[in-house]
Design a binder for these strands. Sequence first.
DNA 1: ATTGAAACCTGTACAGT
DNA 2: ACTGTACAGGTTTCAAT
Lengths: 158, 158
Amino acid sequence: MAHHDLDELDEKILKMIVDNARIPFLEVARACNVSGAAIHQRVQKLTNLGVIKGSEYIIEAEKLGFETCAFIGIFLTSPSTFDYVVKELEKIPEVVECYYTTGQYDLLIKVYAKNNKDLLRIIHNELQPLGLSRTETLISFKDAFRKKFPIRIVERND
Amino acid sequence: MAHHDLDELDEKILKMIVDNARIPFLEVARACNVSGAAIHQRVQKLTNLGVIKGSEYIIEAEKLGFETCAFIGIFLTSPSTFDYVVKELEKIPEVVECYYTTGQYDLLIKVYAKNNKDLLRIIHNELQPLGLSRTETLISFKDAFRKKFPIRIVERND
DNA sequence: ATTGAAACCTGTACAGT
DNA sequence: ACTGTACAGGTTTCAAT
């Protein structure tokens, strides 16, 4: 089962650029035995299709003074506050990710704080005033690993 | 309190490149009123300092057939299996993030699966055989938002 | 640590296939 | 949809400050 309109070349391109957004397209072109223009057009196509959503530099939060990373499970007082709470959470700079989840929590957010005291401030002064029923904090005291999900468009036997 | 050896220029550079890894350094240079070479050297410095860990393209997982994203809380049978379990988890392509956490779980992982059935396969065939005590799955049925944490090196009054 | 200039390499557009 | 060309613009290095 191949996905959408993507082929082996798209897969190879994605694999080459996903972990290095600065790689020259000409280098990708040479590795793929096609012209630079072809890579340029493919990346354009992948962007138009919404497969590529952008690029970013990866920053080590700790080096910028954010030494505490935590996941916080949020229990809402009422399902009707969903949209409001998400909108307000998005305004809080330290809240970097937010997911609607099944299971025990209504929402799961990821937060960066300077330290544990700062995290407590965020929870008390920023989160609680939104009218949450309860929160449950999971402090990540180590980021064991982080990688890209498997790009596999064309089915193979390997 | 300024962090490390970083100044306003570093902050401005980071802010400009963090959400667009493909932005030309010359464009950053013009915005900062310095030469292109200066940006080049600063980015090099930030990389050497470990502030910049790399760059990546952001891929929409759904468009590549990964329609289910889940967080799984893992309870280990014994603390002694920590390192082994993390090492094995890292080998599973669908497991993209792994955190040591305080709170109820020993580990929290993020997983991409093709669909709910595929997620069940991963849990039963890939995770359970590692000898876990129990897992708790939070399926993210929507990614409400995702952004970069606040880059702020120099203290200001704003 | 930053600059300007040089040499080199890429990105991008376009006409042709 | 890919290629080759062409040019504009970017990257990288380096001697000088």
